[in-house]
Amino acid sequence: MSQLLQYLADGLLIGVVYGIAAMGLTLIFGVMSVINLAHGPIIALGMFGVYLCFTVLGLNPFIALILVAALGLLLGLIIYIVAVHRVLNAPHLSSLLATFSVNMIIIGIGTTIWSTSFRNVDYSLGTLQAAGISLPATRVAAALIALLVTGVLYWFLYRTRPGKNIRAVANNRTAAELMGIPSTRVLALSFGIGTMLAAIAGGLIGTILPFTILSGGVYELKSFVIVVLGGLGNPLGALVGGLILGLIEGVIPAFTSVGWVPVFEFVLFVLLLLLRPQGLFGAKK
């Protein structure tokens, strides 16, 4: 019993962090219908950002996240301006390939600088014991930060003007433009925030698990699954989707081989796309 509880707790903690990564992907899709295939490498950059701040500058990894977030936002703005803006109204393939080319560029630069060997942030806050389960404090901290980020994102989207503008553009770009909302700036900002979320998620995962520059790809795929679970374009759904995915990953190994987890995940993913493309919680259109 306590074994299962342990699995559940592990799953939930990592699930919240997955949720942040997926939130970034789904925000971008919701606002501009672009699937950002550079999402994985950006997650990896977040990991390396925290790693470098920790090893080179000696910064506390969780403080380093602030710097990583800021750089993530900036990177997102640049990617939007250079690669995405021109293809927004082109067929899907164009935006997919444009963001994939960014993926190639980041991975190319990353492997040149850091090779593909494993790194990890050697940082521990000890272990928390409760109800017969033990949890590494860094994981708990990562999950709490992820929740905090979600809260801030919600405050931003629902309580501030730029946030409201983002929602307006997501809802109907033409109408928003007619009402005088500067759509290009809003789109760039959304892409920046989506990228920032990916970088933060990467930074958090980096404090928990070892990684290489290629590790982002795995989390990108997980983000796809989560986004579909929560409904494409629905950020809060992404958090819930993240929790569900975390639970699946936590609980399935208790019953069968870990190798079946991705089989199950991706079959679920395809089935959801087919049966409930609006996500588990979205209203039917």
Binding site: F224, L232, V263, V270
Partner: peptide
């Protein structure tokens, strides 16, 4: 007969999912 009902990005995503599911399955 199933996923071709999906259009645009949804179809693209589904094909990724199927490839990954097959890969994971082959490993098992």
């Amino acid at each position: 007969l199933s996923i071709l009902r999906l259009r645009g990005a949804y179809f693209a995503l589904a094909t990724i999912g199927i490839n990954e599911a097959m890969k994971a399955f082959a490993k098992q």
